[in-house]
């Protein structure tokens, strides 16, 4: 497609422009927010929705032909993989001793002895990582 013409192409382009907008917001959040966990929140949410919108734009543009199906498949994969990856990284960060940002008010995870111990970063994995879990 070159420049959008016709209502369907304009709608698709609007979806994709919104997607790029959300992507950019997510990246701004990645730069501005203070710690790993907040950055993951902003990054995962905004960039996931942004990419969803881009893929939806492609589906709208091409209909459900080979290209549309690939975009749909991609959407299905992303909706499962992106939150899962975020969760894995957040857990790994906590267990490897990355502290919450100074303004944080609550850490039930450390209170329950699941993540890092103590306020100082341990600099390595905690000794009992992965043990005693159902």
């Amino acid at each position: 497609m070159t420049d959008p013409s016709g209502p369907r192409e304009i709608a698709a382009f609007a979806l994709m422009a919104a997607g790029v907008g959300f992507d950019l917001l997510g990246c701004v959040g990645l730069v501005r927010l203070p710690d790993v966990y907040n950055r993951l929140q902003a990054g995962t949410k905004c960039v996931t929705l942004g990419t969803f919108l881009l893929l939806l734009g492609v589906i709208l543009l091409s209909g459900l032909d080979a290209m549309g199906w690939k975009a749909l498949l991609c959407l299905a994969f992303l909706s499962v993989t992106s939150p899962t990856a975020a969760h894995a990284i957040a857990r790994a960060a906590h267990r490897s001793g990355v502290p919450l940002a100074p303004g944080s008010v609550l850490d039930r995870y450390a209170e329950d002895g699941e993540g890092r111990e103590g306020p100082e970063p341990a600099g390595g994995p905690s000794g009992d990582a992965g043990e005693g879990r159902p």
Partner: peptide, 15 residues
């Protein structure tokens, strides 16, 4: 932290 860089790799992949 290394975790920050891991986040960036993840986000960059989705981008």
């Amino acid at each position: 932290t290394p975790a920050d860089r891991a986040v960036c790799v993840d986000i960059l992949g989705i981008l």
